[in-house]
Structures are given as structure tokens and as C-alpha cells.
Design a protein around this nucleic acid. Sequence first.
DNA 1: GGTTATGTTATTTC
DNA 2: AGAAATAACATAAC
Length: 248
Amino acid sequence: MPEGPQIVYLKEQTNQFIGQELISIEGSVIASNEKNLAGQSLIDIKTFGKEILFCFTRVTIRVHLMLFGRYAIDGEMNRKLTLELEFENGRINFYASSCRLIEAPVETIYDWSVDVMSASFDERRAVIKLQGKPQQFICDALLDQNILAGVGNKIKNEVLFRRQVHPLSKVKDVPEAKLRELVKECVTVSKQYFQWKRDALDEEKWLVYKKTTCPRDGVLLVVEKLGRSKRSCYFCEQCQQLYDDQNA
DNA sequence: GGTTATGTTATTTC
DNA sequence: AGAAATAACATAAC
């Protein structure tokens, strides 16, 4: 369920709750001494990367859907409930999600300049931070939430294909101009993904993810778990260039 | 029934 | 100490 754009979409679905009073809170992950949240008002909903933040008067609840998380607005699912927030005008349930209470002001712990969906995302800084991981494979570096918060495995594969970079290129061997292209593409794909989500087209738009042949040249795609992260890479050996010591 | 999947974190091992 | 491997968590689809 996650990846930044889907979380921004989720926020869009929950905006109706902003300004509402919390009637009740349930969930196995919220300890009993935290139930006094009821009565507080929902001041704002923010997103950071793959996290959604429910900012109440005195405290913030952070929800991360991880790999299997689901949610239902004014509905039920037959799964393990991790958090239920009931407001005056509706209810949102989270299942199989990771939830945490944040007591500090969120501005002090989140830096939105690394969030690819944020208006304050800083491209140049992302490039510099990538260059700070010279030995990493590009397929791992693009998934680094401290550099490109919100980018997940689907976006990673799409970006590498569109910019024609082999996933096993080392960051230090990728020319700076190409790194800049990759960072820009992360933003582009993320914004498109968000729109696909709105249009309910998000399962059919990917060029290589879960596909078998390259849309450019028809060559069979390679599917392998690569890099330190061992996440699935879908790529074309014909048209995605491997940057290495030879051609850096 | 085994494998895989949009993810992260805690623990163990080297 | 610190990097790297492994386990842990949770759930559905093929």
C-alpha cells in the first residue's frame, strides 16, 4: 500500500477530518495511557515520505503502512486493526500498520526538503546526498528515505528505466548530470503516480514494473533481486546503461 | 503449499 | 565499534 504518492492520496481522502474532534481511539498499538487523546482536535494532517501524520492539539500520531498496511474510511476490513480514529463526521481504520505517538512538534523532527512530494523538496541537496554514498548501487540509493523520502520500489524501477540507468551502477560512477536527471525523474514519476492514483489507473501505467518485455526495444526484461536491499529490479540490459569504472 | 510483494526496524553476527 | 546479515512483523495473491 505505501510509497509517497499513495500516502498523499490518502491524506486527500482524510482531509474531511481536519478540524474535527476525536471522539474515540482504539487499536492494539496505542497503549491505554494514550487514550486520553479523545477530546483533542485534529489540527492538521501531514505526510512525510511514506508516513501520514495526524496532528492533534497536543500530540501527533504517525502511521506507516509498511508492506501490508491497509485502511478503510467509514468501513471495516476483516484484518488486524491497529488504529481506529473516530471523529464527529466519520472514522478511519488502519490495519497491519505501524503506529507511533510523537510528542515533539513535527517541524523539529521532519525535514520536508527530502520529501519528493513536498513543495520544498530540494533537488540539489538530494544529488549531493547521493554523492555522499559513492559506493552504493543506484538501486539502493534511490530507496534511501533520508535522501528521497517517499520513493519506493515501483518508482525506483520506473525512474531507472526512464533515465536508462542500470540498477547496479555505483553512485560514484554515475555522472552528476545523470544523477540530477534521476532525482528530477523521482519527482516527476511520484507526481504522476499520485495522479494515476486519483484516476484509478495506477496499476496499468508502469513501463517495466511487473512487465516482461522492454517497451523501447521489445527485449526481455531482467527481473532480479539486486543490491544490498535485495529488492526486485525490473530492467532492460539493452537500453539501461551500466556506469562503472570503465565509462564513469 | 511455496513464493512473492509498494517496507522498516530490531537483533544478531562477523 | 561498526558494518552487514538475519529475523521480525503482517497479509493477500498467484
